[in-house]
Amino acid sequence: MLKIKYFVQQSWLLVVSAFMFGLLIAVTNAALIDRINANNANKVTDKLKSLIPDADEFSKQESITIKSQQQSNVDVEIYKAVSDGQCQGWAFKAFGAGFADKITLIVVVDKSFEKIVGFSVLASNETPGFGDRISNSFYRDQFAGAPTEKLNLVKVGDADEIDSDIVAISGATVSSQAVVDIINNTMLQLKIKMLEKGMIQDE
């Protein structure tokens, strides 16, 4: 009995405050959780919006399974960009190994899967000042309008000319190559699968 009394005496403050703090967190969480979820959902949509400003809705499609760079099966998330009921283009998430860590990109192509509209980096951990320049306009702009065939990375070339040759960022060849490889791997397999499924028509 004495032991219990001693125990309560020593720890009542801890128990009471733990309860109060738990309540405090629960209230804050309840108040903010909707906003946080909305923010997380907006993260992808905002990037997509900046790539295709015309589209006003992005509907998530059924995922398509492809082979990753390591030849294991992975699911690719696909979004259909719609405006006024018309398909404006397709967007898909692509990921693979970068220089330091995994790179996750979101790539947008036009509605017939003929030309790339652009890409945006969702998550990467490339070296600041070098590898992270893959999200700079010098590199990214080369993809806008490039054909959806196998892209090549070249060290010297004309960056303004839009074709399947992508000019590497000096000092960040590995990261530049990684982005090209990731896009190639995902895009080429997706194109075939989506043609098979009849989601896009071969013209």
């Binding site: 801890l14 405050s17 733990a18 703090f21 405090l24 967190i25 804050t28 969480n29 903010l32 906003r35 946080i36 923010n39």
Partner: peptide
């Protein structure tokens, strides 16, 4: 315990 609670709240506020 006190600090961890307020850090959690700060983190939630930031996220929101």
């Amino acid at each position: 315990l006190t600090i961890a609670t307020f850090v959690t709240i700060a983190d939630l506020l930031l996220k929101a």
